[in-house]
Amino acid sequence: MHQDSDIRAGLRAGLPLVLPTLAIGISFGVLAEPVMGSVAPVVMSITVFSGAAQFAALTVLTAGGGAFAAIAAGMLLNARWLPMGLAIGPFLKGGPVQRSIESIAIVDSSFALASRGDGTFDRLKLIGSTLPQGAAWVGGTVIGVLGGSFLGDPQALGLDAMFPAFFAYLLFEELKDRTRVVAAVGGALIALALLPFTPPGVPVLVAAFAALIGLKRTPAAAR
């Protein structure tokens, strides 16, 4: 079995994500404040702690949709935590309470960082790399809520281009062999095909099915 890296290695892996996460947190705070007030966005960033779901819910609320539609939009984006939770679940530790708490550390970037590429996951790398991102996410939200009027339009600063760039970076790190390239291309094509027709969240969730090409491969352990 693999040895988990220590938590400091995880923290180090998470550090490059602090600035983009801070920037996205700021843009969430700036956009949320007029719609949600100044307290709710900060509470949301602490307790929900899922950027894509928060943006999806905010988009609905901004458009004047009700709580039900906002929750549905958020939960569609959350649906990807189910396969990710199943994948990483066996590598978390302790009883049900501790495992559940550790599962909060599952975020997209940390999931990718913790993935060893053979189907196993590094628990301390997951938790360690999520910690600085969590601080940046909540801190960014506070800055955005309080300082929105000074910062101006987050789009004019290109802040919304940071997340795609950061996913692209993580993705290129992942593309170590042909099977992974095929899974990535498959995921991208599925998302692209569904994007015009389906509610937000569906394209990403269905993109996960591209991973099923792994069923056709020889066991990872045998390589």
Binding site: M84, D118, G119, P164, A168, L171, V181, G214, L215, A220
Partner: peptide, 23 residues
């Protein structure tokens, strides 16, 4: 092992999907 082969590919598949969605 067969399930591990799938979970090993979740990160690239989901990242690619997220990348398209976020862009």
């Amino acid at each position: 092992p067969r399930a591990l082969n799938v979970t090993a590919l979740l990160a690239p598949a989901l990242l690619a999907g997220l990348l398209v969605f976020e862009t």
